[in-house]
Design a protein around this nucleic acid. Structure first.
Length: 180
DNA sequence: TCAGTGATTAGG
DNA sequence: CTAATCACTGAG
């Protein structure tokens, strides 16, 4: 019987590499559909969540993107290289989990809106135990959160992004929401 | 439809 | 310091 290759036996052989994130957000966002988000819980067990819904926020021109108001302390991680987490609190209750993409000084991120069995970005982070402490986390080197290829390529739909009425007609209408 | 909830931000 | 805003959720 054929011996498994080294890469096949390594436990993290499916982990998405830096190159996955260092691309334009409009390429990364649809590629995230069907990927598995792995989180190490407080009891040290790992849980896997297959992503079903994401949204792209792209650059300083995009009026819906937090980076459109310029660099602030909160948004600074978006101005760095892709592969880090942008986490912030909204409405005093819900943590939003975003994956920074692209090259340095080109602020972009993907909002994770849902996973299999979980609809809604606030419910997703509550289920995963995401909070402030995950801000800036590196998905390539972290031992408590990362992404893996599921080996599946799933069909997805596109549509306008949710909850950005303030962004104006054009940015409200661009189909940068990707979902199963 | 609408209140809850508190960090973040711009402005004085 | 103040006050407005907000990439949401759940109850009615």
């Amino acid at each position: 019987m054929r011996r498994k290759s080294l890469t096949e036996t390594k436990p993290d052989f499916r982990k998405l590499p830096q190159e996955f994130y260092t691309r334009d957000v409009l390429d990364v966002a649809p590629d995230l559909i069907g990927k598995n988000l792995i989180v190490r819980m407080n009891d040290n067990t790992c849980r896997s969540f297959q992503l079903t819904e994401v949204e792209a926020y792209r650059g300083e021109d995009d009026k819906a993107c937090h980076a459109s108001k310029g660099r602030t302390e909160r948004t600074s991680v978006m101005f760095g290289i892709g592969g880090h987490l942008y986490v912030y609190l909204i409405y005093g209750m819900y943590w939003m989990l975003n994956i920074v993409t692209g090259e340095k000084d080109n602020p972009q991120a993907v909002l994770l809106r849902g996973a299999q069995g979980i609809n809604g970005p606030g419910k997703l982070t509550r289920e995963l135990g995401i909070d402030r402490s995950f801000y800036g986390e590196n998905l390539v080197t972290s031992t408590r959160i990362w992404l893996e290829d599921s080996g599946q390529r799933l069909d997805y739909k596109t549509g306008p992004r949710i909850g950005i009425d303030y962004a104006g007609e054009y940015w409200k209408s661009v189909p940068w929401r990707f979902y199963i």
